[in-house]
Design a protein around this nucleic acid. Structure first.
Lengths: 259, 259
DNA sequence: ATATGCATGTCGCAC
DNA sequence: GTGCGACGTGCATAT
């Protein structure tokens, strides 16, 4: 790979040269060295000197990782603009972002490694079993909620939020379904109660059933659910995934509902 | 640094050796190469072959970054356990986590770079102007909320959540303050209304004032605020930061309130 | 562009 | 450990 850059223990001037090349060629850039970091924008932060790992990507995202923790100590989302300069053997990298206006300044005093690589990666990432998949499974097989359930509207807008799935039961009662892909907590029940409250206020003579559909229910959620008189339906993510896998994957939610 | 490991274009067997050493010495490990990734746990994901950057940290966190995007495509939080093996010149790395039980499997077919480094970094990260700082500023100067405001309790527990700051106004009316460090949205007003509702239900004969303290208010939040009869107080983050900077930094919130 | 809610969110703090 | 809310949250989606 002729464009590859790997510099071991370069001077800051040599490092700056490699970094410039990597940035202008839109390579994946890694810089490891002793630096201090300052952020100004939505908040402000200061990180005094220490050895860290800097990642810069071609889409203008930048991450600074310390020796611990999952999350970067400082960062800038994609779309940032980079500037670098050497001054008194200090290597300074700035990442600027508009909207919101914020800046990240990294100052290296010594560099242990610079790597600039063109990553070849065209693969498609696939994630299963999120909230959207649960809803899709229910639309394919409404009996997952209850026998005779008939969905009519997805993401129905109310003042207090959006109903995940709206429909009727076999007795023509209105049904409000709230999905949670993980163990449902009190918050989910409160969300459901907000929707039902608003609906009951708007249409006083109808009966509304509140359904919380999730793989499990936390104890506090169960108590609150009974207080409000709502119902819990256990939905197994794996079962949902299986139902999805047997259906054509290209159908959108809107299409399901307008069938 | 005798423990440093840098391998350029190693065979998978050589790479595995370096990776083993890095993992057992708890170094910061970087592996760049062509790999496929599979995750099973709270959800499931599959990423077919392509070149990526793998980071493994001494605290048991692991990140896989692609050439774009701020967030890692796959990861595991701190506390994961690592296993590696070579089989048919395929280098496999597994990261396991209990509670919740989830696993990440990375299979390298070729490696462009392995780096294992001990990062020296003892610096303390400081973040200014978050919600906690706003509260601290108000405790130092309660008039920021209103003339004669007297805070009495921080994070006061209710069934429906925790009140950011609780106190009295000059006329001995109860005051509930909700802080937002950014432009406040509808959610903030609904949160405030939950608290006030519960308080009014519990203590029917008292008057409660709901205050939303934030740098700005979104249009929908303003409407809802008027509906509920709550009040908005503009709090400038920079002003808060200034007030903080003039006070001894070591005082905790509890100390402020018990003074 | 703004608004809204999800996320394998993560993280810290209180119980 | 569980519960709960903040986060420089980031992110997709719908309007």
């Amino acid at each position: 790979m002729p464009s590859d850059i790997v510099l071991i223990r370069p001077s800051t001037t040599e490092a700056a040269d490699g970094i410039e090349k990597a940035l202008s060629s839109h390579l994946f850039l890694i810089v490891i060295g002793k630096c201090q970091v300052e952020y100004r924008g939505r908040a402000r932060s200061k990180l005094p000197g220490g050895e860290r790992v800097l990642l810069v990507k071609e889409d203008g995202s930048i991450l600074i990782h310390r020796k611990k923790d999952y999350s970067p100590v400082n960062w800038q989302p994609p779309g940032s603009l980079f500037y670098s300069e050497v001054h008194d053997s200090l290597l300074k990298i700035r990442a600027l972002r508009r909207q919101p206006h914020e800046s990240l300044e990294i100052e290296f005093e010594s560099v242990r490694l610079v790597a600039g690589l063109a990553l070849r990666d065209e693969a498609e990432f696939v994630l299963h079993a999120d909230e959207a998949e649960m809803k899709r499974a229910v639309l394919l097989k409404p009996a997952l909620i209850m026998e005779g359930f008939s969905p009519s509207e997805s993401e129905k807008p109310l003042d207090s939020g959006f109903i995940d799935l709206y429909g009727k039961d076999a007795a023509e009662r209105q049904v409000v379904v709230e999905f949670k892909k993980d163990t449902a907590s009190k918050e989910a029940v409160l969300q459901l109660s907000r929707y039902i409250n608003e609906l009951r206020a708007r249409i006083p003579h109808r009966t509304f059933r509140g359904i919380l559909a999730a793989p499990a229910l936390r104890k506090d959620a169960n108590r609150l659910l009974k207080t409000f008189g709502f119902e819990f339906v256990r939905l197994d993510p794996r079962q949902c995934a299986e139902i999805i896998s047997q259906a054509p994957p290209s159908l959108t939610l809107t299409k399901y509902l307008s069938q």
